[in-house]
Design a protein around this nucleic acid. Structure first.
Lengths: 190, 190
DNA sequence: AAAAGAATGTGATGTAGGTCACGTAACCAA
DNA sequence: TTGGTTACGTGACCTACATCACATTCTTTT
């Protein structure tokens, strides 16, 4: 399936748009292809867009002073990714986004999103719903962080996204769970 | 200032409503008063409403099997609180909400929110913006959890909400930070 | 096919924070 | 005012996970 149809199906779950309206909506998205390892957003950048994943897998991550990486999100097909703090506040990126595998994405600028939200009530509805989903997921992850040890969190993650196990190197899973790769390695070899 | 004016001012920052529209909007909110210690949502409840705080302070928290409490959110005036997972998925509450001090709130049902979002594009806009704020804050807290030790998180929290220091007992601050009260106590006595 | 670079496994040792136990002070409620 | 509950402090000890160091794959690149 091509990009347009994937986006259309994704949107149709929450918003009702005519073919014409969707065509217009879609015309604001810019298709981009990236190779494995390529960077989409670097800390320090001006952030203008958010990215809808068509194929492949991205990661959104933070690097601290001691050069340790923490992964905020893996973005698989039909997921969205960006540095939303930077995007909404028009500040410099503190979050990086790059490609775990070759990836195709659709890029939507902040201004275009806001414009489309204003023009179509249904588009605004869609984005409210999407953010809501994200918010709920984020709260759940936070709770799991406070409440569960690494082992439980690891099992939770694999139960939720079994694809990750083969797709993503273990040290990135560790970076998502917020533990050292050594600890994770010991964990599942027992 | 009374409840209506507080809500109006809060909404006006992101949504444009005429006086009449706002009156209609406001008519869907039910004012409620609670005493310190009273419960608003208990785990297991059916959750129908979200709550906008006019005065006082609420906490939204989770209790695990070992009867340990983790606080997801303190809700101060002009903040919203509920068990959003339960509210949106129409499932039983897993999160509790209760009153840290006497509190006045405005209660809005899930159906009314959705109805108002449908009727007024501007209301939908407001709720998108609100959830967005929440999402960004939640991501930030998650990152701080992974990246910072308790001491830094404690200082971060007090810098962000200095009122909490006097308003909220220390063991609740500990429950928000996800540490034992003993550790927190040792921390700020050094 | 060789060389270089990632990714992973595993031991030894360090440490932040948890748990348990007990004491004191503050705050209600009758 | 007295007894009970809640908040807070502090010592002794324990544990999950981090860090460092080095060995062993597995993957690219040339």
């Amino acid at each position: 399936m091509e990009a347009k149809a994937i986006l259309q199906q994704h949107i149709a779950k929450t918003a009702v748009l005519t073919e014409e309206e969707f065509d217009y909506f879609y015309s604001h998205f810019k298709p981009l292809s990236f190779k494995k390892g390529q960077t989409i957003i670097s800390a320090g950048d001006k952030v203008n867009c958010e990215y809808f994943v068509i194929s492949g897998c991205l990661k959104a991550f933070f690097i601290n002073d001691e050069i340790k990486m923490y992964i905020l999100q893996f973005a698989m097909p039909t997921w969205w990714a960006s540095d939303y703090t930077a995007l909404y506040n028009q500040t410099e990126a503190t979050i990086n986004v790059d490609c775990i595998s070759d990836a195709e994405v659709l890029c939507l600028s902040n201004e275009d999103r806001e414009k489309l939200c204003k023009e179509f009530h249904q588009v605004e509805h869609f984005f409210r719903w999407r953010t809501n989903k994200g918010y709920i997921a984020s709260q759940k992850r936070l709770l799991s962080f406070m409440n569960n040890n690494v082992k439980v969190r690891y099992e939770e993650l694999l139960a939720l996204y079994p694809q990750l196990y083969n797709l993503v190197p273990k040290h990135l899973i560790a970076a998502y769970l917020g533990v050292s790769r050594e600890t994770l390695s010991r964990l599942y070899n027992s």
